[in-house]
């Protein structure tokens, strides 16, 4: 075959070149047509939203148990037992997420975070009831790695068989609360909830200057991402909206030691008081209403509790639930 580049007049070569040029022009035109956008971009890009499922068990209704004692392992066991046992809440094969409060990089003795013994025991209880997996997560305020390490939560949870998930930017997906005024297209720590069927909140009882107290409902703040601190402008509403957004299977409020001052960071043993109380319940409003008493407050002092009760999320009158009370040594 002759080399077409050497031959100035060659019909086949010309037609071949013309066909290729035509294909190229056509391809460019087709690509342009397919990608054509006559409107230009919108002011704010719409991102697909996610919603958290309702993890509560309707048939269990509102329950509360209050167990006194200094050993968290024993008190939480007893408290859950008093609610009907862990089997009431966790069924074989359930995938459980424990939302702990791991907000600060401080030692367990300072009670600024969920106690590792408690997290480990709840993990063991879940596995004991046949849970197929337990995930422990939080989006802390301080450096996440340091928080989970120094609080002792990571080590304790992993030893008990749970998987600890530290937040990463891609784990957050926007969510909107129906009827909410603050939680609108706001990033939520959603990825760890993938496949999860039960949710348990674990939080200590702490002083909190802006809202009055940090307990079970405030604990959900740790599921928010973005520059969530702006919500402190309307702290009671955000806590109320979080309690509306997150419907847990169970919450456990640890009042073994209560942080009375300098909260929510604490930082000194002087900020703590031994109150030897473990509260478990399905009604987070009632749980927090009782928790307030450990701080020397009443539910009426805490606007977010009033708002949550008025919003139908639970009852302030925890005595009406006839809480199971016990003491373990």
């Amino acid at each position: 075959m002759t080399d077409p580049t050497k031959d100035p007049m060659n019909r086949r070569d010309f037609l071949g070149r013309a066909a290729r040029a035509g294909a190229l022009a056509l391809g460019a035109g087709a690509a342009g047509f397919l990608l054509r956008d006559s409107k230009g971009p919108a002011a704010v890009e719409a991102v697909p939203r996610v919603t958290l499922p309702d993890f509560s068990i309707a048939s269990e209704g509102s329950k509360l148990s209050i167990v006194t004692g200094s050993d968290r392992v024993k008190t939480v066991r007893r408290a859950v037992q008093a609610l009907g046992g862990i089997e009431t809440f966790i069924k074989p094969g359930d995938r459980v997420l424990l939302k702990v409060n791991a907000a600060f990089a401080s030692a367990p003795s300072l009670s600024a975070t969920a106690h590792p013994d408690l997290v480990a025991e709840v993990t063991r209880l879940c596995f004991g009831a046949g849970a197929s997996s337990v995930v422990v997560t939080d989006n802390p305020i301080n450096d996440p790695q340091s928080c989970f390490a120094l609080s002792g939560i990571a080590k304790a949870a992993e030893k008990a068989g749970a998987r600890v998930i530290l937040p990463r930017p891609e784990y957050f997906k926007p969510t909107t609360l129906d009827g909410g005024v603050l939680i609108r297209d706001w990033p939520l720590l959603f990825e760890p909830f993938e496949g999860v069927t039960k949710l348990i909140g674990i939080a200590p009882v702490k002083d909190h200057h802006r809202s009055g107290a940090s307990m079970s409902m405030k604990n959900w703040y740790g599921l928010l991402g973005g520059r969530r601190n702006v919500f402190h402008q309307d702290i009671h509403t955000i806590i109320y909206e979080l309690a509306k957004l997150v419907r847990p299977t169970l919450v456990i409020l640890d009042g073994t030691t209560t942080m009375l001052t300098n909260g929510p960071t604490g930082g000194s043993l002087d900020d703590l008081k031994v109150t030897n109380t473990m509260i478990a319940g399905t009604d987070q409003v009632a749980v927090d209403a009782f928790g307030a008493t450990l701080l020397g407050k009443t539910a009426a002092d805490l606007t977010f509790i009033t708002k949550a009760a008025e919003g139908g999320l639970g009852t302030v009158d925890y005595e009406a639930l006839h809480p199971a009370r016990d003491h373990v040594t």
Partner: peptide, 22 residues
Amino acid sequence: CLPWAMDVPCIVCQENCPVSPK
């Protein structure tokens, strides 16, 4: 500062101060 300049409640800084007493 929101509370100082705009009469908007906030005190995120106070809450996060890790020193005891703050």
